[in-house]
Amino acid sequence: MAEDREIAGIRCMQVLEKLDDYVDGALDATTQDQIERHLEGCDWCTKFGGEYGALVTTLRSGLKSAAQADTDKARDLASALLARK
């Protein structure tokens, strides 16, 4: 198990807590910079954060693109529902 090290004014555990927002680019500039400086000095967080980011990227690589809809089936359903009004 890793030590919970403080680097660049932020501890490993705090980096773990903010990892989602870091991956999503949802952090304010100051915190983003602080985490990046932590990562520069922390091989554990760099490795784990890299894996975490890679997992999210893999998940999202299957993100649905504009699907070619089965419009006939959808239109049939809409017609049936409208007919019941």
Binding site: M1, A2, C12, W44, K47, F48, E51, A54, L55, T58
Partner: peptide, 15 residues
């Protein structure tokens, strides 16, 4: 795997 020095680095899982 957080903080585990033995964890495999940059393991690439398939979808």
């Amino acid at each position: 795997g957080w903080g585990d020095p033995e964890v495999e680095a940059s393991r690439a899982e398939s979808i």
